[in-house]
Design a protein around this nucleic acid. Sequence first.
DNA 1: TGTTCATTTGAACATTTTTACATCTGTTCA
DNA 2: TGAACAGATGTAAAAATGTTCAAATGAACA
Lengths: 123, 123
Amino acid sequence: MTNGQPDMSAKENDYLAVHEDVVKRVLERQPADEYLYDLAELFKVFGDSTRIRILYALFESELCVGDLAGILALSPSAVSHQLKILKDAKLVRFRREGKIIFYSLDDDHVRTILSMGMEHVEE
Amino acid sequence: MTNGQPDMSAKENDYLAVHEDVVKRVLERQPADEYLYDLAELFKVFGDSTRIRILYALFESELCVGDLAGILALSPSAVSHQLKILKDAKLVRFRREGKIIFYSLDDDHVRTILSMGMEHVEE
DNA sequence: TGTTCATTTGAACATTTTTACATCTGTTCA
DNA sequence: TGAACAGATGTAAAAATGTTCAAATGAACA
């Protein structure tokens, strides 16, 4: 029988962390959970092919919902749902002209993020 | 009554595309669907807070599954499942040392993509 | 060889997410 | 005002995803 460390006392979880010192050090440097959560939420928005196609279409020009529906071969309703998600994530913005609402990419982060993704996929 | 374009003849879908010329022009410039699909798949991998936390932890140092489980307060099994997804997406790589397998970030794209996301979230 | 330990794998379950359909809002224009 | 139209929204059904639990793999070492 090993004589050392006999009691497992209270631990944060039941699983054995192999290198406690490493775990502790890394934990101290982690950003706030809320922050990481927001980041995941952002990428989740990019993580759908319909939304990616919308963003790529808007890459070319400002477009209204009807046009996007035509380009994606989807119902205006489906497009509108996805646009709402993109709007909430501040990835697109819009302006109204009479009955028609034109959507466009919100800022250059969007372009940059897409480009980075591209590079990784293309390798 | 407008005299022009009287017949709706055959269209790709049933929904009215408001500006046919614009639709056509944008469509011509869209990347292949398969490509956009891959891109969405990549971002989908980033779009989960557990995986984001794993990536951030690996940002600090190479880690084994047990350590990651400790850091995330998750079971090694759950961590392993997510690592498989990250491996398949070529976002992490690993090396074996005896019984232990150490994971690390695969390339600098990962860091860059995370940084871009950060900037958008922080604004 | 047989045991131990780190990790992986597979199946089941719960949750989230996407799509479709119907309905509603708000603007234009007769 | 009210008909027509662009777009938004709620919700239910369908599809995809994450976590857990149990069992399997595979390397190390007695």
